[in-house]
Structure formats: structure tokens, C-alpha cells
């Protein structure tokens, strides 16, 4: 099958996640062609055809315009699949392209299965197989699900002119907040999730962190609810950590949280739900009420 891969470029750089698209194409045994709004100076290491629009002329984020460019390439190449990374760029653009082509869209694919694509659902607790019934399919792949592959070589570049127009104006980027705590340096991180129940209970999690000589981490809802400051957040939109010990207290294990901590040497999870997806990465899953188990563990450590 012929697959149009949509590369990603941000703040002047080709993003590494672009290579995961080749990982998908490799597994699917597809013939890849790439489209990207990017720069001549940042070509992917790939010997096939690359349709390139200049980011300086088109803007790095201008979905109306990028959609139009993709549709032009689709017309020329007639691919069976159009594949994006499931990222803030991909999930924004993919549905627009899918509707314009009236093609089925399958989001956040984790594996290619006979008869369709496997995707997560119910916050990562369950899986579905989705089968498109249209001749063309738009796909977004889960970040990290397909190993990145650098095919090597220099692309044959077809330059695309900026179509102009578009109804959105990109104002600019805002850098990530300054980090007060550098969790990346911590040897032990004890993180509070929504399962701790309320803001007052965070102190109990912090006490375990202290008893273990580590830092306090947090999942996103705990930060959004202002129970813990943002610079303690672990995950795709927080910090990426790999301590010797990571303790997840009342954290379900959503993919965006796992992305930030799954490389930890040893993962201890405390959850009252033994089916919580955190169990997939945890070395030890304690099935208990976090407010009973954590103080008991802290007390025993103090002895």
C-alpha cells in the first residue's frame, strides 16, 4: 500500500517523532512518501519522495494552509493511507484532512492487526480493533508505539509553493514554565495522583517522599486542581524522569503519564484497582487504599 507520512517540524527543527512514522510504514510493509512543512536545511534521512513546503512561507502552525497542501499531495500521489503522529500537530490536522477526503480516521493506533488497527480506549484500560471501510484512511499513531526508524539516504524533494490564505493567525510560542524542582536529578520520586482524594492528603504522600529521601511528583489532575505546583508534574506535558525508584500513589497510568516515568529503574504503584493500566509498567502493584498503605509504609520506614 502507498502511505503518505506527515512529518513534523517545530521551532525550526525536524522532530524525532517523524521517524516513528517510518517505523509504522515498515511494520505495515507500506511504500512511504513524505510530506512536511519544514526546511531544506533539516531534511529527514530518507531516500524516497518528499513533498516539502517551506515553514518560513507557510508558518509552522497554520492548519488551513497545511491541510490544503496535504490535499494537493494526496491528489497527486493517491495514497491508501495518510499517517500522522498523535501529537498536538497530528490530532489537530488529521480530522480536517479526513473530513475533506471523507476518509475514515483511526486515532492513536498502537498496533497493526489483521483486519484493522488496535487502539486504546477507556483511559488505557481496554483496547479496540477498528476497521476502516473507506478506500483511503487517515491514521494517527500513538507516540512511542512504533519504534523510530531512519531509512537513510537523501530525499528527492518536490518543493510546494505556499497556497496563501488561511483563517488563522499564529502569534507565537510561549516557552515551558521554568522548573523550580528538577525531578530529572532525583533518585527517588513519590508521585500523588487523583486517587489521593483531596489536597490535604498530599502531605501524606510528601511525607513518604521525605522518608525515602526523594522528591514529590504529581500527575496532571493534581496539578490542574492546584493541589501541587506545576513544576512537580510528570508526563508528556510535564517532566520526563527515570529515578531509581518511582512510587505512583493513586495514579491510573494514562499514556501521557507513563511517557514521563516508564523508564524508571523500579516502579512501585499503589492503587485500589488491580486492573489500572499502571500495572503494565509497575514492578510491584500494591492493591490497597493509598491513604491506608502509604502512612503505614512511612511509619515502618521511620523505625
Amino acid at each position: 500500500m502507498k502511505t503518505l507520512l506527515i512529518g513534523e517540524f517545530r521551532e525550526g527543527k525536524l522532530l524525532d517523532s517523524t521517524y516513528e512514522l517510518f517505523g509504522f510504514a515498515g511494520q505495515a510493509a507500506d511504500e512511504p512518501v513524505m510530506f512536511m512543512v519544514g526546511s531544506e536545511t533539516q531534511l529527514p534521512s530518507f531516500g524516497g519522495r518528499l513533498y516539502l513546503a517551506d515553514a518560513a512561507a507557510c508558518g509552522e502552525y497554520n492548519p488551513d494552509l497545511h491541510k490544503q497542501l496535504i490535499l494537493n499531495v494526496v491528489q497527486k500521489e493517491n495514497p491508501d493511507r495518510i499517517v500522522f503522529v498523535h501529537s498536538s500537530y497530528g490530532w489537530d490536522l488529521a480530522p480536517r484532512v479526513a473530513v475533506a477526503l471523507k476518509a475514515a480516521q483511526v486515532s492513536e493506533v498502537v498496533a497493526i492487526q489483521e483486519g484493522g488497527f488496535e487502539v486504546g480506549c477507556c483511559n488505557g484500560k481496554m483496547r479496540r480493533i477498528v476497521k476502516p471501510s473507506t478506500p483511503q484512511t487517515v491514521i494517527t499513531i500513538q507516540a512511542g508505539a512504533f519504534q523510530g526508524v531512519q531509512p537513510g539516504g537523501t530525499p528527492q524533494v518536490t518543493r510546494l509553493a505556499a497556497p496563501g490564505g488561511g483563517t488563522m493567525e499564529f502569534v507565537g510560542y510561549e516557552p515551558a514554565e521554568e522548573k523550580g524542582v528538577d525531578l530529572a536529578k532525583a533518585e527517588v520520586i513519590v508521585s500523588a495522583g487523583r486517587g489521593v482524594g483531596k489536597k490535604d492528603n498530599v502531605a501524606i504522600i510528601a511525607a513518604l517522599a521525605k522518608a525515602l529521601g526523594g522528591e514529590l511528583g504529581a500527575s496532571r489532575p493534581v496539578v490542574d486542581a492546584e493541589w501541587v505546583a506545576h513544576d512537580h508534574q510528570v508526563g508528556t506535558t510535564g517532566q520526563t524522569v527515570s529515578p531509581k525508584l518511582y512510587v505512583a500513589c493513586g495514579i491510573s497510568g494514562a499514556i501521557q503519564h507513563l511517557a514521563g516515568m516508564k523508564k524508571s529503574d523500579f516502579i512501585l504503584a499503589i492503587n485500589k484497582d488491580k486492573d489500572a493500566p499502571i500495572g503494565e509498567v509497575a514492578d510491584v502493584l500494591v492493591v490497597a487504599d493509598v491513604m491506608q498503605f502509604v502512612p503505614a509504609l512511612t511509619a515502618k520506614l521511620a523505625k
Binding site: S88, M168, F170, Y173, E174, P175, A176, T237
Partner: peptide
């Protein structure tokens, strides 16, 4: 808009 790694993108429409 929230992008990866805590970076944000501001746009108008």
C-alpha cells in the same frame, strides 16, 4: 494551544 513538553502556541481567529 498546549504543545508537547509544556510549550504553548498562541493563535488568533
Amino acid at each position: 494551544r498546549e504543545l508537547e513538553g509544556g510549550v504553548k502556541g498562541v493563535m488568533r481567529m
